[in-house]
C-alpha cells in the first residue's frame, strides 16, 4: 500500500464514525465551492477616502514610507525624486507591467530602467500592486509574464505603485477579486502580501529592518485616473 493510501485510510477509518464517506465528500465540496466568509473586521469598512487614509497610516506604522500622487503621470517623477533624495543611482528594475508601461517615463530622461527579472546587485525595484489592504497597510502583488517576483525581494529599495481605487478594506475582498480575475480555484503562481519592509528580531529580540528582502518599502498611492 502506498503512503498516500495508508494515510488516507487511517484518516477515513478514524473519521467515518457518524457520517458516511459520500456525505462527507459532498459537504466538503460544498464548503469549498461556497467558501463562506468568516469574521471580517469593521476596521477597513470605511468610505473611500478614509479607507485610503487608513491604508497609508497602517503602512507607515509598519515602517513603509508612503506618498500620494495625483495621477499616474506623476509616478516617474516620484520614483526619480525618491532615488535622488536617498542618493541612489537613477536606475530601477521594473517588469513589463502594462500599467507601469503606460506611464510617461520619458519625462525622467536620466532614469535608467532595467527590465526583466531582478538581479542581485539591483538597488531599486518598481512594481505595480493589484491592491492595497487598509486593515493592515498591505500591498498585494502577483507574479506573471510582466511581473517578476524577484523585483519584490532582491532590490534594497522596493517601490510599489498602487491605485487609490484598488485599496480595499480587507483580505476577503482581495481574495474575491483574485477569484474573479483568475477564476474560482485558480491562482497566479505567486501572490505576495507585503506589509512593510523586511525585518528580523532574531538577535536578542532587537527589531532590525532589511533582513533578506528590501530594507525600504516605498508605497506610491495614485489618487487620480
Amino acid at each position: 500500500m502506498s503512503g498516500r493510501e495508508a494515510i488516507l485510510n487511517r484518516l477515513r477509518v478514524a473519521l467515518r464514525e457518524g457520517k458516511d464517506d459520500a456525505t462527507r465528500e459532498q459537504a466538503v465540496q460544498a464548503r469549498i465551492a461556497a467558501a463562506p466568509r468568516g469574521v471580517v473586521p469593521m476596521r477597513g469598512r470605511l468610505p473611500d477616502d478614509d479607507r485610503v487614509t487608513l491604508f497609508c497610516a497602517m503602512a507607515q506604522k509598519v515602517s513603509a514610507t508612503v506618498e500620494r500622487v495625483g495621477s499616474s503621470a506623476n509616478v516617474p517623477g516620484a520614483v526619480a525624486a525618491y532615488l535622488r533624495q536617498r542618493n541612489l543611482p537613477a536606475r530601477v528594475r521594473m517588469g513589463a507591467d502594462a500599467r507601469l508601461g503606460a506611464m510617461p517615463w520619458n519625462t525622467e530622461p536620466s532614469l535608467e530602467i532595467d527590465s526583466g527579472r531582478a538581479q542581485d546587485e539591483d538597488l531599486a525595484g518598481v512594481s505595480h500592486a493589484i491592491a492595497g489592504i487598509a486593515e493592515t497597510g498591505t500591498v498585494v502583488l502577483h507574479s506573471g509574464q510582466d511581473n517578476p517576483t524577484t523585483v519584490n525581494f532582491l532590490p534594497e529599495h522596493h517601490l510599489v505603485v498602487v491605485r487609490a481605487k484598488d485599496i480595499v478594506g480587507d483580505l476577503e475582498t482581495v481574495f474575491d477579486q483574485v477569484r474573479q480575475t483568475f477564476g474560482k480555484g485558480h491562482m497566479p503562481r505567486t501572490l505576495n502580501f507585503i506589509t512593510g519592509p523586511s525585518r528580523s528580531a532574531d538577535i536578542e529580540q532587537t527589531l532590525l529592518l532589511g533582513a533578506h528582502g528590501p530594507r525600504a518599502l516605498h508605497v506610491i498611492v495614485v489618487d487620480g485616473d
Binding site: 497602517m58 509598519v62 517588469g95 526583466g116 527579472r117 531582478a118 486593515e135 493592515t136 497597510g137 498591505t138 507574479s143 506573471g144 509574464q145 517578476p148 517576483t149 524577484t150 491562482m187 497566479p188 503562481r189 505567486t190 501572490l191 505576495n192 502580501f193 507585503i194 506589509t195 512593510g196 519592509p197 523586511s198 525585518r199 528580531a201 528582502g213
Partner: peptide, 24 residues
C-alpha cells in the same frame, strides 16, 4: 505570535512558474 497585525511577507504559492514567467 509577534503582535503584528500581519507578518511582513505572506506568500501564496501555487504550482511551478507559468509559461512566460520571468522567474520562479
Amino acid at each position: 505570535a509577534t503582535g503584528q497585525d500581519m507578518s511582513v511577507y505572506t506568500t501564496l504559492s501555487t504550482g511551478p512558474r507559468r509559461a512566460g514567467d520571468p522567474d520562479g
